[in-house]
């Protein structure tokens, strides 16, 4: 890495390109080809966006639970045959997942990128940011992603297919997903911002969706990655993280106990990266493989991003020094500081 180019900047560039591809990609791959890629990339690219080049994998899961599995269980039939599309969806997800592991979250997801942009805006406005959430809150929030995955992506759609709940719960996660609103708005389509009055269920879901998106906008200015912490895609990734080829490994040293810079740098507040001293694999369930912990580790090769056994990026004292300096200068430049300086100068 040169003085100007660092891992975070490289990641932002990749995220920007991924955002453009996932939100406007049909302009590149063609309108109909975009349809064919559906369900392949496990990023939150939304099928409701008519310009996207890809569909989020959570959409077919919900539809298959509702329209295939639930209905077959209800009406009787070949359950294995009904499960086959879900297994194929899972297979395509895993194929992509093996290649990049959880780096999809930190490097490709459009919603993750959008939250980083919000964070950047908050920082550049000079807002008093909450750099780390309290540990108790972080621990309390963590199970929500599993609840959302199991209940909204699999449970309720299955019950809808069984006829136990209304059809409005056939794709409840999509109904509340902030990415549906984000990607359609980014494509110039405002039709997904609505309150649906056709039934109580649709009304509640549409209300939650808009409130959640508004909350994410507000919290994104102050807190890093607020929605990622409860995202079911993070949970889906976490469930299979041991088979991904990209790894985050740690070779703890006694100095680590007093340091903790890696945990402070982590946008997901994974304090275990700091405290874990025994196991080498520190790819925790909430990790998005953004690599910030490696960047801000001051000790040589304590933290490493690896592709199987091949090192991709290692902690390095010289890099850390440059990176910390660059971060300090970057954070000093904001609108509030500029305004204060201007007023001070005028006075």
């Amino acid at each position: 890495m040169t003085d100007r180019l660092n891992l975070s900047l490289l990641r932002k560039l990749v995220q920007l390109l991924a955002f453009l591809f996932l939100v406007y990609g049909s302009a590149i791959v063609g309108f109909y080809t975009a349809d064919k890629i559906s369900g392949a990339l496990p990023a939150l690219a939304c099928a409701y966006d008519q310009q996207t080049a890809d569909y989020c994998t959570l959409i077919p899961f919900q539809h298959q639970m509702d329209h295939r599995v639930g209905m077959v269980i209800n009406a009787g039939g070949d359950l294995l045959k009904a499960l086959l599309p879900s297994l194929i969806t899972l297979g395509t997800f895993l194929l992509m997942f093996v290649v990049l592991n959880k780096a999809f979250c930190g490097w490709i997801c459009p919603l993750g990128f959008f939250q980083e942009v919000l964070s950047l805006i908050g920082q550049k406005l000079g807002l008093r940011r909450i750099e780390s959430l309290p540990e108790g809150l972080v621990l309390r929030v963590r199970p929500f992603k599993w609840v959302i995955l199991l209940l909204l992506v699999f449970g309720l759609p299955l019950l809808a297919g069984l006829g136990s709940v209304g059809h409005e719960l056939g794709s409840p996660y999509c109904s509340i997903c902030p990415s549906r609103i984000l990607t359609t708005l980014a494509a110039g389509d405002t039709s997904q911002v609505y309150l649906d009055t056709s039934s109580d269920g649709y009304f509640v879901l549409s209300l939650i969706a808009n409130l959640l998106f508004g909350l994410m906008l507000a919290w994104g200015l102050f807190v890093r990655q607020p929605f990622c912490r409860i995202c079911p895609m993070l949970a889906l990734h976490a469930a299979f993280r041991s088979i991904g080829l990209v790894r985050l490994v740690k070779q703890g040293k006694p100095r680590c106990e007093k340091c903790g810079l890696c945990a402070k740098a982590c946008p997901m507040d994974i304090r275990e990266i700091h405290t874990e001293m025994e196991q080498r694999d520190v790819l925790f369930a909430d990790c998005t493989l953004c690599g910030r912990c490696v960047e801000f580790c001051p000790d040589k090769e304590v933290l490493q991003l690896k592709y199987v056994t091949l090192p991709l990026f290692k902690a390095d004292p010289a890099y850390f020094k440059r990176r910390k300096q660059a971060q300090g200068q970057w954070e000093k430049r904001n609108l509030l500081a500029w305004w204060r300086k201007r007023r001070g100068g005028a006075a």
Partner: peptide
């Protein structure tokens, strides 16, 4: 047209409510 049973204004107001509520929580 789903606009017959979907209120865009209601949606934007709910979104704004979420935003303001989020600021208040912070």
């Amino acid at each position: 047209d789903p606009a017959h049973w979907r209120s865009a204004l209601g949606g934007w107001l709910a979104l704004l409510g979420g935003f303001v509520g989020g600021l208040a929580v912070v």
